[in-house]
């Protein structure tokens, strides 16, 4: 089986600086693999174990994210045999359809993929619909929030989707696009051996789709206004300190 696992490279949101204007400063913020895409890579690694299977990692985005060898090695240390990149600074990938179009075009170019895996949503935009849109664009069956994938035969997988109140199982003919839930696995930490090998794996840059217009304008982007909090902070874990905490709770809440 030929598997493609999609993973987005994003700025580490915990390290984004908020300026006094409430605008964000993304300059110099380290890049990372989007949290939930680690689950897609891990699912791909598990499914591709065994002879005859291959796992290609696919990432799409701008130069600053995808050119550094450090991040490429990071992706490749997580089970993929090779890495395909679409590097496109002409598109901001701020909407789900732009990203989905680029992924769908890349999957067509890669060719013969049986299974395309995505994460639940990216750490930066968390649209949670890109995988579904890729499936619809390619005309493949597509399922989101997948919590289990079992290979039935060369052309079929059994897929479990966990909804808010129920669990469904589908028989899905391949090729298919599945967005996996973070519950599906616990991504492993790459071993030193995997990190060493990652540098030797092939990386190829694919063409970006020519026409990929955005569906929307961004009118503004500001940090949320800091909610006023009283910040009455006391130090101590003795009875006196706890009494103060109890006094606060009794006065304000209880």
């Amino acid at each position: 089986m030929k598997i493609v696992a999609c993973c987005k490279v994003v700025p580490d949101e915990e390290l984004i600086q908020v300026l006094s204007s409430r605008e964000l400063s993304l300059d110099g913020v380290p890049a990372k693999i989007s949290q939930y895409d680690l689950n897609a890579l891990e699912a791909g690694k598990k499914l591709s174990a065994g002879a005859g299977n291959t796992l290609t990692a696919l990432s799409i985005g701008g130069k600053t994210f995808l050119e550094p060898t450090k991040i490429r090695k990071d992706i490749l240390s997580r089970g993929a045999d090779d890495l395909k990149l679409v590097i496109d600074d002409s598109v901001t990938f701020d909407d789900s359809l732009q990203t989905a179009r680029a992924i769908a075009a890349a999957v067509r170019e890669i060719g013969d993929a049986d299974l395309i895996l995505c994460g639940t949503g990216s750490s930066d935009l968390y649209a949670q619909v890109t995988g579904i849109q890729v499936g619809a664009l390619l005309g493949y069956p597509t399922v989101n929030n997948v919590t289990d994938i079992r290979v039935v035969d060369a052309g079929t997988v059994e897929v479990e989707r966990t909804l808010e109140n129920s669990v469904e199982t589908f028989s899905v003919p391949l090729p298919a696009v599945l967005s996996v839930s973070s519950e599906i696995n616990t991504p492993g930490v790459p071993a030193m051996r995997d990190i060493m090998r990652a540098g030797k794996k092939p990386v190829a840059v694919l063409a970006a789709p020519g026409d990929n217009a955005a569906s929307a304008d961004i009118l503004s982007q500001l940090a949320p206004e800091q909610q006023e909090r009283r910040q009455e902070i006391i130090e101590g874990d003795n009875e006196e300190a706890v009494d103060k905490l109890v006094a606060f709770l009794r006065k304000e809440v209880l």
Binding site: V18, D124, A214, S220, Q221, L222, P224
Partner: peptide
């Protein structure tokens, strides 16, 4: 909508 894990809110308008 909230982006970057809560670091910012984006105001967006459809153009399509």
């Amino acid at each position: 909508r909230t982006v970057y894990g809560g670091a910012a809110a984006r105001r967006i308008a459809f153009t399509t």
